[in-house]
């Protein structure tokens, strides 16, 4: 992938600031939109509404953490919605039958196992992760319906809710989870050797392999993390809504991938950040929230969300070959 352009001061500056400027652009967009909504709707800029926005973004952020790792390693996972549903439904049943701790463990294990399965099948059999995860999406979603016998599972367990739902003071616990997990995920990705190997695997699998990195193992781990994130998201869903439904989070894969892409991660792998994903998710939430306050329904939200995705990718740096993404 050698280029022939010469390096010069300008390029170096853009490169260093490049990543920073992408994120700055996102922050700018969020601020700009918030300004517009504040001006047009009296309800936007209030503590209650801002807390709502972050709370409504929390689950997408948690899922986005895993997805960021996966996409940076040049794979993809479209099974997270189904895995989340099966995790939640399983956890719900166990919470009601045994107890909150056992339920939480079951939920996490379901997510982790599906993630590992995604990884192992992708690497051992050499099937593209897109196809594998379409398969596991169906399996997980179908299993969720079967396990729950097509009924919502109501969970009213005080202990569970105190950990995964409710508030601590004025702050919803959901937000604390999202924040805490994001910090851990971000630091791990940026500062640990494993994180560096994730970037390298996605950037040039050949370079990584020739340098002795076990790229197969890296990918299995990122997919496992995405599964684990889905499990956690399932528990948080129960914490928030007090019920587990097999049809929950239908189509959330696209929203999460959109947030990750808007946040600067390249679908080809090798580039991206946790901060970007969070900003991408927030941008979408701000748009949804503002439009709802102004009385525009889900059709407008879908339309504008689509435009934002295209705009975000178009405004990003082109890589040397002149292609976007």
């Amino acid at each position: 992938m050698a280029t022939t352009s010469t390096s010069d001061l300008g390029k170096l500056i853009t490169d260093r600031l490049g990543r920073f400027s992408e994120l700055a652009l996102l922050v700018g967009a969020i601020v700009l939109l918030s300004g517009i909504f504040t001006a047009t709707s009296s309800a936007f800029f209030s503590i209650g509404n801002l807390v709502n926005i972050i709370r409504q973004t929390a689950i997408v952020i948690v899922l986005g953490l895993g997805m960021t790792y996966v996409i940076i390693s040049a794979e993809i996972d479209v099974s997270i919605g189904g895995v989340m549903a099966l995790s939640a439904v399983s956890a719900g049943l166990v919470i009601n039958a045994v107890g909150p701790f056992a339920g939480a463990v079951v939920g996490l294990l379901v997510g982790l196992c599906f993630g590992l399965a995604n990884g192992l099948v992708t690497i051992r059999f050499g099937i593209p992760s897109f196809i594998v995860t379409i398969g596991t999406l169906g399996i997980a979603r179908g299993a969720a319906f079967i396990v729950s016998q097509q009924r919502p599972i109501i969970v009213r367990n005080a202990a569970f809710e105190s950990v995964f739902g409710g508030t601590i003071g004025p702050v919803p616990v959901l937000i604390l989870w999202a924040l805490g997990l994001a910090i851990v995920a971000g630091i791990a990705l940026w500062r640990t050797r494993f994180g560096r190997h994730v970037y390298a695997t996605g950037d040039s699998e050949q370079a990584a392999r020739y340098s002795g990195i076990n790229t197969g193992r890296v990918k299995i781990m990122t997919l496992a993390l995405a599964g684990l994130a889905a499990g956690i998201a399932g528990l948080l869903f129960i914490g928030r809504l007090g019920a587990a439904r097999a049809d929950m989070a239908s189509g959330i894969e696209l929203a999460v991938i959109a947030a990750v892409i808007i946040g600067g991660t390249s679908l080809f792998g090798g580039r991206g950040s946790i901060v970007g994903t969070i900003l991408g998710a927030l941008l979408i939430s701000v748009i949804d929230n503002g439009l709802t306050l102004l009385g525009f329904g889900s059709s407008w939200q879908q339309l504008i969300r689509g435009l934002v995705i295209i705009a975000a990718v178009a405004l990003r740096d082109r890589d040397e070959e002149g292609s976007f993404l």
């Binding site: 992938m1 970037y199 390298a200 050949q206 370079a207 340098s211 002795g212 090798g270 580039r271």
Partner: peptide, 22 residues
């Protein structure tokens, strides 16, 4: 050192040099 270099284009010079041996 391979003919097609096998370097990671989006990683920095230092990161490439120490790839696998961080």
């Amino acid at each position: 050192v391979y003919q097609d270099l096998a370097i990671a284009p989006n990683r920095t010079v230092a990161q490439n040099i120490f790839l696998g041996n961080e």
